[in-house]
Write a protein that binds this DNA or RNA. Structure first.
Lengths: 194, 194
DNA sequence: ATTACATAGACCAATCGGGTCGGAAATTCG
DNA sequence: CGAATTTCCGACCCGATTGGTCTATGTAAT
């Protein structure tokens, strides 16, 4: 509480829980302030609006995801393993984020751009990771692709494709099986064939 | 849809899902009707109010619970086992119901009586079951209690006591350990000592 | 055609909820 | 200590939301 920034984080952490449970719209500022044991107007001292809090929460979660991804990739060495881990963690984490997305898309398409704004930054980052991965795998003779850039983009497209049903339908089918299917597809199409 | 009663059930089932997720207050009639793919006003043809739906849902869940309890008790024969199963199932089921309770107590104590009204009916029923259980155990020489009635009431009080933290704090500590503690307490206080 | 059932769109009144404002505490500084 | 600054909040505003109504329309049965 000493530091203003610290308290912002506390708000983010608290709001995150409520948002992930009730979604953006159904979460009230009153609830957040109640959970913080502060007056509602006090929160406006730290954040300009409810949306600003939401944005900070999503940003925070995204950073968390990045950290997890880095760790998961460091865990293994070979490019295929790295890719596998990457996709796994990414999908798992997205289950959580999907709550927020769900909330935003709750009959309120207005916020689409706002989410997209946050995402585009991470899309670029992700693309770089994938590109490097493919490139290295290629150089090591494990993969065999003509253009790392476009292959990375293709993989990313697939990944994005996997997200969609996550926030339209709730766990329609087992995620694992989809995951493995995607993985085997990527690898079978990417692995050097003897 | 042929039968009016059937459609009421469909509404109950649908509303149940939404209520259990968002709670009473945060669930809107619009949502329910949207989930049913019907106009909002159509629902009022089957139910008089949102509260009436909620009441029906809670009633329905309570009946489900009763069925589960019967089954669990039929599973075993000895009174201690029956009691153990009874408490186990009851607590487990209450985790689900707690959502509703949570919702109602959400800074809106007005509805307390309404919930209590539904519960009192089941309280009496529960008491009868417990009384019989204690009585039989007693007669078989497994338990040793003076008054079945009051012992049953005491057990029921304990059970109620276990519910409270369920909807004040979310799973504050592991439920199982509390459960076992309660069970061992009841038995050690009730079992015939040699 | 008439009746009874079933549905929904438009509408209403009340409440809700995000956000503001002025000022009170609390804390820091001089 | 007092003044300045930071932090907090009760009360209020006002547009949006929402539970609920009313009337009109469709439709199946008699």
């Amino acid at each position: 509480m000493i530091n203003k920034e610290e308290y912002r984080l506390k708000i983010i952490l608290t709001a995150s829980k409520i948002f992930s449970h009730y979604g953006f719209k159904k979460t009230t500022m009153d609830e957040i302030s109640r959970a913080l044991k502060k007056g509602k107007s006090s929160i406006y001292y730290y954040f300009g609006s409810k949306e600003e809090i939401f944005e900070a929460v999503v940003l925070y979660e995204a950073n968390q995801l990045r950290t997890q991804l880095r760790a998961a990739m460091k865990e293994v060495d070979s490019p295929p393993d790295k890719l596998r881990n990457y996709i796994f963690v990414r999908m798992r984490a997205f289950e959580k984020l999907s709550n927020y997305y769900n909330a935003v898309f709750d009959k309120n398409l207005d916020h689409y751009e706002f989410i997209e704004k946050i995402r585009s930054r991470y899309d670029r980052e992700e693309l770089a990771i994938l590109r490097l991965l493919v490139f290295i795998g290629n150089r090591r003779g494990i993969f065999e692709v003509r253009d790392s850039e476009y292959t990375a983009m293709a993989i990313q497209t697939m990944l994005k494709g996997m997200e969609v049903p996550l926030f339209w339908r709730k766990r329609e089918i087992d995620i694992n099986s989809r995951l493995n299917a995607i993985l085997s597809l990527i690898f079978d199409g990417i692995n050097k064939r003897p």
